[in-house]
Simulated scan of single mutants.
Amino acid sequence: MSESPRTVIVSVPTDELAADIGPLPDGVELVVWDLRSPAPRGAFDMVVPPYMSGKRLLSALGDVKVGLLQSQSIGYEGMGAYLPEGTRLANATSVHETATAEIAVGLTIAAQRDLADYVRNQESARWAPQFSRSVADRTVLVLGYGGVGKAVASRLLPFETAIIPVASRARDEDGVHVHGIEELDELLPHTDILMITLPGGEPTKGLIGARELALLPEGALVVNVGRGTVLDTDALVAELQAERLRAALDVVDPEPLPEAHPLWRAPGVIVVPHVGGAADAMRPRIAKLVRTQIERLAAGEEPVNVVDA
């Protein structure tokens, strides 16, 4: 007598995501669980936690057997310590690169063309044209040449910029020479715009500190769409208060930024609250990724985007 096929049990955090996934393969049970209520099952083949929930909800998995945790974020630093034993982690590579690149380019344009000044002037009906910096003809050092870094670089190239990609090791990739991180000291003095797209975690913590910022030329722009911990906040504030550098930041350290923090009021800075991936392009892309994982699990295949947390 043959065994009946095993049911693959998957949870997603919202009815919206469940609907976006669409029809399921045979042998798949999909439940909606936001990790804030008691677990509706004792075991899951895959759990998708809420977006931007960080680690605070992962304690709900303590007594639940989970095969795969499918994050809705690209970054996953530190999550390994919160995963139940035997649970693998997959990140959301392919979901956020486009939206994050959009905000990286948007912040760059806003900072270079002084758009924040014009918005403030509009509030008081003040007509005050000014001569601003361009994006064209600038040298942009893209620190972190993974999915997000490549997406940013490809969008900045048509603005007639010179792109200098930097990664953990030097290499030639698709006709592009990627510089190694050990070359950073030589490259920073020739950088007009420092674009940080690196992930967080111990290997990148404080990578750009007072010494590295001092190597940038006066008037350079620092854009961070990676993780706030890559950039030493106190060192950046000192450069901003001296009006030597400018910054446009989607991520900061700490997050959320306290109301009294001097970064809010430093001259020459734009701060947005970690919204690089928070765009409607995410919805169909996360649904596509989750569906791919479901189909692979149902077929007995290895999931994609599995990372070592």
Rank of each mutant, 00 (worst) to 15 (best):
M46H: 05
R113D: 00
L143M: 11
L184W: 12
P258W: 05
R133V: 08
G42L: 00
Q122G: 15
Y51M: 08
R169T: 15
V135D: 04
A309Y: 06
L215Q: 15
L249Q: 03
Q70P: 05
H179Y: 12
P284D: 00
G80C: 02
R6D: 05
G80E: 14
H190D: 14
R244M: 09
A220Q: 03
L83N: 14
R244T: 05
P267N: 11
A247C: 09
A260N: 14
D15R: 14
D172Q: 13
P256D: 01
G200Y: 12
E243K: 14
A101H: 06
E212I: 08
L156A: 11
P25C: 10
A110V: 09
S124K: 03
S53I: 07
P38Y: 05
A167D: 15
T191L: 07
D34W: 02
T229F: 00
I163M: 10
G149P: 09
E123C: 04
A167C: 03
D253E: 13
A238H: 13
I196E: 03
G268K: 04
E102I: 10
V8M: 12
A281C: 05
D34K: 02
D172A: 13
L188C: 09
L263Q: 09
D280C: 08
G22A: 10
H190K: 15
T14E: 03
K205W: 12
E16T: 12
A167S: 15
E16D: 14
A279N: 08
V119Q: 11
W33L: 12
A279L: 12
